[in-house]
Design a protein around this nucleic acid. Structure first.
Lengths: 364, 364
DNA sequence: TTGTAAGCGTTATCAG
DNA sequence: CTGATAACGCTTACAA
């Protein structure tokens, strides 16, 4: 029971050896206790645990990782470059919360890779390299471009990956996504039910899967409902406000402007409202607007935005759960998950003004 | 030059020993090259670097951390509990971006401690313990309560810490914060200049320093401008929408309702606008509203919100830079930084309606 | 049920 | 300028 040197005025940080000494057992036994091995006598276990608590002992992750090859850390690749200078898309923030909660519950922490446009030193952005460097047990990818070679390198590796809103697959890579197509259909159906026949669509960034799926859903609904599909009712946006604004201006300048517009994001829907407002059009009377996402601001804008709610936290949670399963069970196949979306009707959608509400359209 | 066994079909992950072998030098020398030691011959250096590049070598962080006691990882404590069920305050998200960029530029990564209400296993929420576990070189704290014992334990330790929007100090702990008092003064001055004499204030959560400072600034400006301070013009909120809504309802019910309200957050300002709207009051004519933060939605609500812009990314950046300095220079004193705020005039503030605009007030 | 000892992949301290 | 070799704090056969 020789006390260790108390040279420092601050408390020494206890070591597993120190713990062993004070418990009167070997480090191996301490390790067994700490890792819940069954073959330890209750007596010993209790004693070690007591000393551990007293010393406020906590194992060093680095040492453990080094030998076990597991870090209990999940990497997060989340693009936060300068593409959209002031704005982060609010979507991912909420996903992150869900993710954090679900992996946290399983005792994993999140490592945010600081990955901007420009290389910050070693290599450009070697996601795989960095994942190995930190020995992360798995990775969640969000807001990145699936065509990026660095992304493909990672998704092609044996490190478990889950992408959010991105159709990435690989030997150990799956993804979670909202039911974007169905969501778009719901949007169009809703507008159709209200009496709209001239429904335009502002797409998201067309290099992304969600944008493509929403356009698909839009078309499918248009066809199924017997509405006429018109090329000039499609405007390409990029998910952000400004593009929605420009797209709507263009739509409104046409010879036969739409009475309703379905934007593939709430941000673009807000832009659409601004454009309408600028032309003295009232919403929803002159122009009905439906968004997608149901971000925080959706109920706060005036008029409150009708939109398709994505279960953002749910996406994060699903991603986290899937990832942990993949990590802990090598046999578990990378899943592809689709989460339902929900139409939330607020004030920005209503019937078209009567004079063009009814039947002068060519239904089937 | 005996090649290592290529037993696996997948590429082997090169080790520093492998690197040494293929370079024809010892691991020590390789280490020297990799860590930019000066005492290596250019010849050797080049050779090693070449092989390293070819093998796509990347050192294992865990091993390095174990021996150097430095992880090049910064911990982030960001409360994301269930207090405000669906919402994250948008403020911190933007701070996080700035933080990520600044520490990323210095080659640090961010470890998000998954810290909810409930304990997720080991101990409740031992921030210090977990910081040591992961060997983080420093910690940034946001959205936490400074009175939390776990927080105090961390800020009292020798681990470098920087708090954001929280007046935390300690041997190695400093903080960054906006000039909240000045911001509040600017808000009141702005309203006063517009002709308002009955200016109310909805405070933030009064257990926080920013809320206290904003109230201080409000009072200071009220006094300096010779306006009458009235207790009934002060309503306590909690930074979120609902509290702003309730506070404004209460204010509007008084015998002599204010013509302007300064809310300590944009979210509460939005709540204020809703309350006004509900009473058929038009903004800014019947009620001028000024917020604080300039979050993303501020320019998007109708009318667009006048507010005090905090340099959110700047706060994150400042926190990151200060932290890294503290990490790399033990002698560097924990700084207390105050960043300026800027009045952004939009549509929600204007002169009061003429009938009570002018002079029936007791100016000095 | 427990102890001994060999690593895990690096860096750091010595000699040479 | 370079090479052995001992840590770093922990887990894990292998023995006892």
């Amino acid at each position: 029971l020789v006390p260790k040197t108390f040279s420092e005025t601050e408390a020494e940080i206890a070591d597993i050896r120190e713990l062993a000494r004070q418990s009167g057992v070997s480090v191996a036994t301490v390790s067994r206790v700490l890792n819940d091995y069954p073959d330890v006598s209750d007596d010993t276990r209790e004693r070690v645990l007591a000393v551990a608590a007293e010393l406020d002992y906590m194992p060093t992750a680095a040492a453990r990782t080094l030998v076990t090859k597991r870090s209990h850390v999940v990497g997060v690749v989340l693009y936060t470059g300068h593409e959209h200078p002031d704005i982060q898309h609010p979507f991912f923030q909420e996903v992150l919360v869900g993710l954090k909660h679900s992996v946290g519950a399983q005792k994993y922490d999140l490592l945010l890779f600081s990955t901007e446009d420009d290389e910050n030193g070693f290599g450009t952005r070697g996601y795989l390299k960095r994942s190995r460097h930190h020995h992360v047990d798995g990775v969640v990818l969000m807001g990145v471009d699936g065509r990026d070679p660095a992304v493909r390198e990672l998704s092609g590796s044996r490190i478990p990956c889950v992408a959010v809103d991105l159709d990435l697959v690989g030997p150990r890579t799956g993804y979670v996504m909202s039911d974007n197509q169905r969501g778009a259909e719901l949007a169009v159906e809703h507008l159709h039910e209200l009496g709209h026949r001239r429904v335009a669509h502002i797409t998201g960034l067309m290099t992304t899967k969600p944008a493509a799926d929403r356009l698909l859903g839009y078309r499918a609904a248009i066809d199924r409902l017997g509405l006429r599909y018109r090329d000039e009712y499609i405007q390409e946006g990029d998910f952000y406000v400004e593009s929605g604004y420009q797209a709507t201006k263009a739509l409104l300048e046409g010879p036969e402007p739409p009475t309703a517009v379905f934007a593939a994001s709430d941000l673009m829907a807000v832009g659409a409202m601004q454009a309408a407002h600028e032309r003295q059009l009232s919403i929803p009377d002159d122009l009905a607007v439906v968004g997608f996402d149901d971000i925080q601001i959706a109920p706060l804008v005036r008029p409150a935005l009708t939109t398709l709610r994505q279960d953002k936290a749910g996406l994060g949670r699903a991603a986290g759960e899937a990832l942990v399963r993949m990590i802990e069970d090598t046999a578990f196949t990378p899943p592809i998950l689709t989460l339902p979306v929900e139409l939330v009707v607020r004030e920005s959608s209503g019937p078209p003004m009567t004079h063009d509400g009814e039947t002068h359209d060519k239904e089937v």
